[in-house]
Simulated assay, not measured.
Amino acid sequence: MDNQKKPYYIDVGTGEISQSATSSTWSFKIQANDEEITELRELFNQNYSTEWKAFWRAHVPYVQYHYDRENDEYDNKIQQIYGMIHKLGDQEAKNHIETMKILPKTQ
């Protein structure tokens, strides 16, 4: 795999990763190598699967959100995705993610 970092444009809502800034809308610009992009793609794929589980679980009215494994799993994946974008992102991406206060506090 290529260890040279290249620019990528990320849209978390759609899970899209693009090398073109003009082909679609994007929210974050990152610099990543092939291995890092593969890892980010896998996180997006896992999150998509988790979203479906949460969708079906949402139709069970007696399970509250804070007792819901699927929602906990979704929250965890989103934190991992934003954590990776924060690690690889440009300063604007880092600043934006920090203002979201979505990442766990480090000791």
Rank of each mutant, 00 (worst) to 15 (best):
T38K: 14
F28K: 00
S24M: 05
S18T: 07
S23P: 00
G13P: 00
T38F: 09
S20D: 11
E16Q: 12
G15K: 11
T38Q: 13
T25C: 10
N45Y: 10
W26Y: 09
L43N: 01
A54R: 10
T25W: 07
L40I: 02
I37M: 06
T38P: 03
E35H: 07
K29E: 10
S20Q: 02
Q19K: 10
I17M: 05
T14R: 02
N45Q: 15
F28M: 01
Y48H: 15
N45F: 10
W52L: 15
E39Y: 12
Q31S: 13
S27H: 02
S27P: 00
F28Q: 00
E51T: 15
N33T: 03
E51Y: 14
E42A: 08
Y48E: 11
N45E: 13
K29L: 08
E36C: 09
E36I: 09
E42M: 06
W26I: 02
G15V: 04
E39F: 14
E39D: 14
I17Y: 01
Q31C: 09
D34R: 05
A32W: 01
N33R: 00
E35C: 10
S49N: 11
E39G: 09
T22P: 00
A54W: 08
T38G: 09
R41T: 15
V12C: 04
E36K: 11
S49T: 11
V12K: 03
I30L: 06
Y48L: 15
G13R: 03
A32L: 04
E51F: 12
E39V: 09
W52E: 14
Y48M: 12
K29W: 05
Y48N: 10
A32R: 01
K53T: 13
T14M: 01
T25E: 07
W26F: 15
Y48A: 14
W52M: 13
N47F: 07
A54V: 07
S27W: 01
A32E: 04
W52S: 11
E36W: 08
A21S: 14
D34C: 06
E36Q: 15
F28I: 01
G15Y: 02
T25L: 13
T50Y: 09
G13E: 09
S49H: 10
T38C: 10
T50M: 08
W52R: 15
T25P: 02
I30F: 05
T25F: 12
N33I: 01
S27R: 06
